[in-house]
């Protein structure tokens, strides 16, 4: 199924993602990594740390609602794969990001922005692996 090429909206959204990463570092001294923020939610030793993560996640989830209020249309969300594939993919993403130490936001944006060699390598690996996976699933199998 084709999706519309949206260079302007995508670049604009990217600017906001970058701004959020910079603001989180400026105000709270932390890397904006979605996996790290979510993973820390399941450690309960430090309430102040926990509440910060929870506030970030509630803010993130408010994003599409504010978008709906501002534009009058809900964001488009396709269902390109069956539910079992979503579950399987989620499990694998959890294992991989845990061992790889981050995901697209942590390595791909924040890590590369501070020229971390680890993050450059990680980003190259997960991008290449995702391209290969989609190629195999859509064109080989």
């Amino acid at each position: 199924m084709e999706t519309e090429f949206t260079p302007l909206a995508s670049f604009g959204g990217g600017l906001m993602i970058g701004a959020a990463a910079v603001l989180l570092m400026a105000f709270h001294g932390r890397i904006f990594g979605a996996t790290g923020i979510l993973g820390g939610l399941f450690r309960f030793s430090d309430l102040s740390d926990w509440s910060l993560r929870a506030a970030l996640i509630v803010g993130m989830a408010a994003g599409p609602l504010v978008y709906l209020l501002a534009t009058g249309t809900p964001p488009e969300l396709g269902q390109p794969v069956p539910a079992w594939a979503v579950a399987l993919g989620g499990l694998i993403v959890g294992l991989g990001t845990s061992y790889g130490g981050g995901c697209t936001s942590g390595h791909g944006v924040c890590g590369i922005a501070r020229f971390s060699h680890r993050s450059l390598v990680a980003t190259a690996c997960f991008m290449a692996s995702a391209v290969l996976t989609v190629y195999v699933l859509r064109h080989v199998v």
Binding site: L38, C125, T133
Partner: peptide, 21 residues
């Protein structure tokens, strides 16, 4: 760990289409 973990993440991302962010 970094290389294989990230490659495994890409596999899951390519299957589901969602990443954590």
């Amino acid at each position: 760990k970094l290389v294989l973990g990230s490659a495994v993440f890409g596999l899951g991302w390519g299957i589901a289409g969602f990443c954590p962010g």
